[in-house]
């Protein structure tokens, strides 16, 4: 089984390899359909957000928690640690530097986990598409469940995106985590192509 395989972690100096777990990510198969359906319902109704707000899109996330939009009525809540979050919101364009942090945070979330790319920048680089430093297409690096386009998308659009995501989850189509594990080598190669000073383990447990 490839689960048992270990990652080489070549980006780390020799003496640091023992400090990080070197297991490969695993594919976790869904359970029997009726149970999974119930569980997916709970996942869809309890989306905890890890907001990665370094792009300008983050500004549009704040209103979501206010009385006007109030996403808490969907059981959604912000969560300060990736360990406990199930939804990673990429709040806009990603640079080489921030991509590294996003990957680390994503990998630290537990399966099942979902990614929403916010704004055009995550789709194609947006207005920064020709910058030396911007990532143009997020889903080369992470499995994205929902893109919300716009520059910037309004909170209403974001809520629509959430609805889309919930629908995907309930339908059992939001298996990004498993996809990431299955095509791990491809994602990793793409990531490493951008991030040349890779000083993390290959998979951040």
């Amino acid at each position: 089984m490839h689960n048992k395989e270990t990652l080489p972690n070549l980006g780390l100096p020799e003496h640091e390899r023992d400090l990080f777990c070197d297991a490969r990510p695993r594919v976790s198969k869904p359970l029997a359909s009726y149970i999974e359906k119930f569980l997916n319902w709970s996942r869809a109704n309890s989306l905890w957000i890890l907001a990665y707000g370094t792009g300008c899109g983050a500004i549009e996330l704040r209103p979501l928690f206010t009385a006007r939009f109030d996403i808490s009525r969907y059981g959604m809540a912000p969560r300060p640690t990736p360990r406990q979050a199930s939804l990673l919101m990429i709040g806009g364009y990603l640079s080489v530097k921030t991509l590294k942090r996003v990957i680390r945070s994503y990998e630290q979330m537990q399966n099942p986990k979902f990614v929403i790319g916010l704004g055009s920048c995550t789709v194609n680089g947006g207005m920064y598409w020709d910058s030396y430093n911007t990532i143009n297409r997020l889903d080369h690096y992470l499995p994205v469940d929902v893109y919300i386009t716009g520059c910037m998308p309004r909170p209403e659009a974001i809520i629509a995106g959430f609805e889309q995501l919930k629908k995907r989850i309930k339908d059992g189509r939001a298996e990004g985590a498993n996809q990431y594990a299955e095509q791990f080598d491809w994602y990793k190669a793409n990531q490493k192509k951008i991030i040349t000073d890779w000083n993390m383990p290959d998979y951040n447990w």
């Binding site: 777990c21 360990r83 945070s105």
Partner: peptide, 21 residues
């Protein structure tokens, strides 16, 4: 069975990796 035993630097560290123990 579903729980992966991790090492000491596999911690949430504001999206960075810890520098030294």
């Amino acid at each position: 069975r579903s729980i992966q035993k991790v090492k000491q630097f596999n911690i949430v560290y504001a999206a960075e990796r810890p520098d030294r123990p």
